[in-house]
Design a protein around this nucleic acid. Structure first.
Length: 286
DNA sequence: ATGGCACGTTGGACGTGA
């Protein structure tokens, strides 16, 4: 596919790969075709040693990653450069060993890549962990907003924000952790801090999904859920130009149950330079 | 109310995901 026309446009994407080893061919195909400037990955399901950095470098990307055996695992890819790490792991609980948060500066923005806990079954300890993790995330998100920097928080939030436009039919999901009022309330609180839900902003009133489970022919029937979100800080929200879901990736044989989701921001060159310094400041402080 | 499918695990039934 041809390069995008607007060279100053910055495309940032999030993709829950559901196993980096299994999904590497899809990841490479997607990077080559869509050429995101920054890509956040979740559910690597691999140890650090197993991360395919050579293949990703060959594709023209630098990367940071935080792996874990069997589960979780997140990564940040940046086209033509190595992302500058500002945080590894979500603050607020030293006993939390799950690889779910990574943060870095790249291409003039600060990017937080998250894999919020699923929380099923609920109620129970896993749901408690989800809510506790979410509360820590709210705190950190506020800290990032207070710094007045261009920030994107991208990832698998494991929250369906509303019943009407963000899910095909909530009936069979009523008791699922993804739809619980406690989960939704925290997502609303996040937006109330001042973050902009990019995909919803660009598609108001439209049924739009990022995840289709493997059961019951949900993908062919477009019975999906919107759970992968890109939130923009107040500095970046005015630059939002486009946001969408790369559904073709979900249609590949042996696909992940998630599709890549992205935003495109209009970044003027001077703005890019101006943000570079302040990003370093935030990165140092963090 | 349950299960449907797919992932990774030192190797095959199980825990986990959403």
């Amino acid at each position: 596919m041809a390069k995008r026309k607007d060279a100053s446009a910055l495309r940032i994407a999030t993709f829950n790969v559901n196993g980096i080893k299994t999904r590497l061919p899809h990841l490479l195909q997607w990077l080559a075709r869509e050429q995101p400037d920054i890509a956040c990955l979740q559910e690597l399901k691999a140890l650090d040693d197993a991360f395919p950095i050579a293949e990703i470098r060959d594709a023209g990307y630098g990367a940071l990653w935080m792996g874990q055996r069997s589960w979780n695992g997140v990564a940040i890819l940046a086209r033509g450069m190595d992302p500058i790490e500002s945080r590894r792991g979500l603050p607020g609980d030293k006993a939390d060993t799950q690889s779910r948060y990574l943060e870095a500066a790249a291409h003039g923005v600060l990017v937080g890549c998250l894999y919020l806990p699923n929380g099923n079954p609920q109620p129970g300890p896993k749901f408690d962990y989800k809510l506790a993790w979410f509360d820590r995330f709210l705190k950190h998100a506020q800290h990032l907003l207070d710094a007045k920097q261009p920030v994107v928080l991208a990832g698998d939030y494991n929250v369906v924000p509303t019943d009407d436009l963000d899910i095909y039919d909530p009936k069979s999901w009523k008791k699922d952790a993804l739809l619980q009022p406690e989960s939704r309330e925290r997502y609303r609180k996040l937006l109330a801090q001042g973050w902009t839900d990019a995909l919803r902003t660009m598609h108001p009133g439209e049924n739009i999904y990022t995840f289709w489970d493997y059961f019951r022919n949900h993908w062919p029937n477009n019975r999906g859920l919107r759970i992968d979100h890109l939130l923009l800080s107040e500095e970046l929200a005015p630059k939002l130009r486009a946001s969408d879901v790369d559904r073709w990736v979900r249609d590949l044989p042996s696909a992940s149950d998630h599709a890549p989701t992205w935003v495109e921001l209009a970044m003027s060159t001077p703005a890019k330079k101006a943000t570079k310094k302040s990003i370093k400041k935030v990165a140092k402080k963090a």
